[in-house]
């Protein structure tokens, strides 16, 4: 009964499972997927805290409005999102209160033939902030913990959307727009490799102008306990409403050719160099497509 850290523990567990397990393990050959609890039909909230009711209501009202009339989202390459099995969607990330996540969710639900739900990984911060802690899980937000991503991707075979730029993306000021930041430490690639799920890069144009940040106020950030405290065209002088007052930038979402992770050999995540290579490749693909898309558009507002 050794108790190593999470990462180590999983690696060792895998070794035990792959190296001809003895005794109880061999007798039953447990596939973790078969033992997943099913959702009882009477339930309205999933085990992740996702509520179809709340999500559906927002989808019909706020998201519908922004998707169709305000941002006039156009989607390319939806066929790159697989119809079944887990897949990791990776996108660039921007805007003080980023609209890109829910727009991508909506795009997959709207355009994809299977209308698959997308789970959005969010910072742990959201779980600890009153109000947001209640709302974010209801609309499909899941804390960005490697174990959560693995369960969703591998065991439940869901679509998971990650923003590897994280806070560095949403924090950046308007003059740094469309310059994709460092992709974390490649954790998302590792997650995809462990789950043997493909990575679908996504380039989003428009989000970076929908709510540009002109400055970040550190003192007010500390005071409010928020992740950051930006000055945008409408925030903070219009108050909380200003957080939803996006500028009507034209949105284009381009789904790109998936990067396979199941043909990289046994346990490719052990090879740090390979992980970084894949991460850099995904980042470069997104960046190139952003240059292409920004170069082709004539107007920020009309597209």
């Amino acid at each position: 009964m050794v108790e190593p850290t999470t990462e180590q523990g999983r690696a060792e567990l895998e070794e035990v499972l792959s190296a001809a397990p003895a005794g109880a393990l061999a007798r039953r050959e447990p596939d973790p997927r078969e033992l997943l609890p099913g959702l009882e039909p009477e339930r309205r909230v999933t085990d992740w805290g996702r509520s179809e009711r709340v999500e559906g209501f927002l989808d019909r009202t706020l998201v519908e409005f922004f998707y169709r009339y305000w941002f006039r989202v156009e989607v390319e390459g939806i066929e790159h999102v697989p119809g079944d099995g887990g897949a990791l969607l990776v996108s660039n990330h921007a805007g003080a209160l980023p609209p890109d996540g829910s727009m991508i969710q909506r795009a997959v639900r709207e355009e994809h033939p299977r209308r698959r739900p997308v789970h959005l990984t969010v910072e742990h911060f959201f779980k600890g902030y009153p109000g947001l802690a209640m709302l974010v899980p209801k609309v499909g937000g899941v804390p960005a913990h490697p174990a959560n991503v693995h369960r969703l991707l591998h065991d439940e075979e869901q679509l998971v959307l990650v923003f590897p730029e994280g806070r560095k993306g949403t924090e950046k000021l308007v003059n740094a727009r469309y310059r994709v930041r460092r992709f974390g430490r490649g954790g998302f690639v590792e997650s995809a490799m462990r789950a043997r799920a493909p990575i679908v890069p996504i380039a989003v144009v428009g989000a970076e102008e929908a709510m540009p940040a002109f400055a970040q106020l550190r003192a007010l950030r500390r005071l409010t306990g928020l992740l950051y405290f930006p000055i945008t065209p409408t925030f903070p002088h219009l108050g909380v409403l200003g957080m939803l007052a996006y500028l009507p930038a034209k949105f284009r979402i381009r789904f790109l050719t998936p990067v396979r992770t199941d043909d990289l050999g046994e346990r490719p995540w052990r090879d740090r160099a390979l992980v970084h290579d894949v991460a850099a490749e995904v980042r470069a693909t997104i960046q190139d497509n952003l240059y292409d898309m920004v170069g082709k558009r004539r107007s920020v507002w009309l597209g």
Binding site: E3, P4, T5, T6, G9, R10, E12, L13, D47, W48, H124, F125, K127, G128, V142, P143, H145, P146, A147, N148, R151
Partner: peptide
């Protein structure tokens, strides 16, 4: 805690 995984398995600390 805030930073917990959504489902603890036995090998997690």
């Amino acid at each position: 805690e805030r930073d917990d995984p959504a489902f603890f398995s036995e090998d997690m600390l």
